[in-house]
Design a protein around this nucleic acid. Structure first.
Lengths: 201, 201
DNA sequence: AATGAAAGGATTAAGCC
DNA sequence: GGCTTAATCCTTTCATT
């Protein structure tokens, strides 16, 4: 496995600015041929760094309720379940999970009615929500850009940079990057114990 | 001016799924020719509905600090200034403005140090921040999708659907859609009074 | 908004280091 | 493994209707 190099970062930055920019154009800027750029983009997708090519839309111009930021306090074992239900729901644009566990989401709520929305979206899972708090938003913007600091993959086990020896694992649909076989083994162990714990509860 | 029709929404949905999908592919799915799709995309960009073609990146895989959601309580006239400074800052992914005025932002903070980050990002503007609150996140995901309800442009003045008679204004860099000349005039009036009020403060 | 021609870009395959 | 070049195929753009 190769780690991310400066060229990868430049490609990501250029595509973040304009995801429809021709590969040939990118190739000229980074000093490669277009097949080389295409290969790198494929690799960045496979690594899970690029999740998708998409649009940044001005949703405020589109009909569909009042934009709101909602904070949920949920039962400690249920954050993921709530997150997934919200992420799949119509009108939800962002889901954030914090440690406590609290789940935040930003959505456009019809008539600003959070209670109905939660009941419809979460169904029986609504039981795990202890409390919630709604903040109406006047503006929401996404600011996609890549900073100079975002330079390397970080190991899910030790936090160090992932280099040549690194590996990428896909567990339950999520990707994890590990910097060395020892971290990989430790991480697998932790992960399995964690999964069993979750099932046992 | 034309309003958004069902075909526009289908195009937006297809491009949200994959912004690099060929226009010819889209054309087949919506029953148009590819030049027609290209024209509509150009129009959607000009209308400000499409802000940009971009990437959804898994930033958790990239180095760069601890993801956090920060809530700022700011001086009532300063929300926009703070929003713009944050939106331009490295590592900031989302900025939300609420009415009170509070500004929320999601960013990756180096060493989780919000105070330093705010001082560097806001500079002298830091004075307008009365208070802030940091929540460390364990997961942040963006869920771009277009719901069945997002069907039309809404008038910035009356909230009704923008139809054939509608117009789009660009004021101070922001776009506003208005459904009729009367709403347009009223909105201009409101806007000017508002701007003068802000300057007078 | 469709058509068809011309220009431009992406992808593949072969070969190099 | 990652790169390049060259050939092929596909997509977009533009002029026209």
């Amino acid at each position: 496995m190769r780690t991310l190099d400066d060229t990868d970062i430049r490609i990501l930055r250029l595509l973040t600015e304009d995801a429809r920019r021709p590969y040939r154009d990118i190739a000229e800027r980074v000093g490669l041929s277009s097949p080389a750029v295409s290969d790198r983009v494929t690799r960045l997708r496979d690594l899970g760094i690029i999740r998708r090519f998409t649009l940044d839309l001005d949703r405020s111009a589109l009909r569909g309720g009042v934009p709101a930021l909602v904070e949920l306090r949920v039962r400690s074992d249920a954050a993921e379940e709530v997150r997934d239900a919200l992420a799949a729901a119509d009108g939800v644009e962002h889901v954030f999970v914090a440690a406590e566990p609290r789940v935040f989401f930003q959505a456009r709520l019809a008539r600003g009615d959070a209670r109905t929305f939660l009941a419809e979206t979460l169904g029986a899972t609504l039981d795990v929500v202890a409390d919630y708090d709604v903040t109406v938003l006047t503006d929401a913007r996404w600011t996609p850009q890549i900073g100079g600091t975002d330079l390397a993959l970080t190991c899910a086990e030790c936090g160090n940079e992932v280099g040549e020896d690194g590996a990428t694992l896909r567990l339950d649909g999520d990707l994890y990057h590990l910097c060395c076989p020892s971290c990989e083994e430790r991480f697998r162990g932790r992960y399995e114990r964690f999964s069993e714990g979750a099932r046992a509860e």
